[in-house]
Nucleic acid binder design. Structure first.
Lengths: 117, 117
DNA sequence: CAAATATACATTGGAGTCTTATGTATATGC
DNA sequence: GCATATACATAAGACTCCAATGTATATTTG
């Protein structure tokens, strides 16, 4: 996914939708390129989304009815803004909760000594 | 991976090697079936490894020189025990550290409000 | 002002990981 | 005797993401 300095890229699989939905929850409205730049700056340059991962995922989210798009003319270029739908909002909350639960479960396996972390 | 009640199975991708290496670090010596049962009990039944994921991964770890095997006759059945090699030990430490870093980075994206969690 | 870089969208082929299904065989509990 | 548990293994396919490529405009820099 993400060109990134992290060695284990597979770890990041499955988090892309969660990341996008959560960012949209916070920012309200974003376009694709903006998402890549925001993720890069928020992660100290460690996670850099690739277009080959990002755009197909955005299109999937749209097809699933979790986001809607508005095109906006900027000079001669067109930007495509994405906004969460109500079901997209719910999905964002669920996905983040699922991620937290995932981290907790893996923590049980990786840090059994630390009583309850 | 892993048949499991978690809804977002993709989240777990990329963690299997890390889990196996870490378990071997703790337990010293394990066989495949034992790994599936240990993971199940340690995660409250939430993560259940499938053979289709586990065995190919164990074979890969062996091919990479991170584990070695000893077969043991138990009655008429044969158990295949896996033990970490020195490079397997290093790999375990690295993988767990990578996972921690991954969680930290995703945390930057998902919990921007919590100062430094 | 030309070239490089940044902005901005998008698609395609392929790699890698896991799931589902299947196969084989022994052991145990009811 | 039959179901379930133990114990290994492989194969076909789904799914996600990466790398490469393509198009086009805008800005920076030498």
């Amino acid at each position: 996914m993400y060109i990134c300095p992290m060695h284990n890229k597979e770890l990041l699989k499955g988090t892309l939708k969660t990341i996008i939905l959560q960012l949209l929850t916070e920012k309200g409205r974003m376009y694709g390129y903006e998402i890549t730049q925001t993720v890069k700056s928020m992660t100290e340059g460690q996670i850099q989304l690739t277009e080959g991962a990002l755009y197909p995922t955005l299109h999937k989210l749209e097809a699933e009815g979790l986001v809607v798009t508005q095109k906006e003319q900027i000079g001669k270029r067109v930007r495509k803004y994405y906004t969460l739908t109500p079901s997209g909002n719910k999905a964002a909350v669920n996905k983040v909760a699922e991620f937290e639960e995932f981290v907790r479960l893996i923590g049980l396996l990786l840090h059994p000594k630390k009583s309850l972390q």
